[in-house]
Amino acid sequence: MNPPKSDLPQGTLDLLILKVATLGPIHGYAIAQRLQQISRDALQVQQGSLYPALHRLENKGFLAAEWKESETGREAKFYRLTAKGRRQLRAETDNWQRLSDAVGLVLQLAEGESS
């Protein structure tokens, strides 16, 4: 039996992709694999929706892309984080941290009251 999977909250896919891209030039399939591995299959990413997000990030200049040979010898599109993307990642991470802290706080408080 697989562990239960959660859908990604709106807008977090971009953050995750940017984070994964810090590892260095990486192609789309590898990004998908990494996302699943790191989240231990807990996050449900519709693989198709990865690509529009990649293209959007590339269009915004957060990611840069180049075509080169992959480990299997086929031509693949590799994405890497740009300086602009790095700044964006930092800002988004801070945002996320604040949000998740706040949400956690509220949940703890609510738990304390009910017990």
């Binding site: 519709q46 198709g48 929706s49 690509y51 529009p52 997000a53 293209h55 269009n59």
Partner: peptide
């Protein structure tokens, strides 16, 4: 199944190009 509709993905990518 995991990938979803190839054409829909393509269309979304195109719209990401602006």
């Amino acid at each position: 199944l995991e990938f979803g509709s190839m054409d829909a993905v393509k269309e979304e990518c195109r719209s990401a190009w602006g």
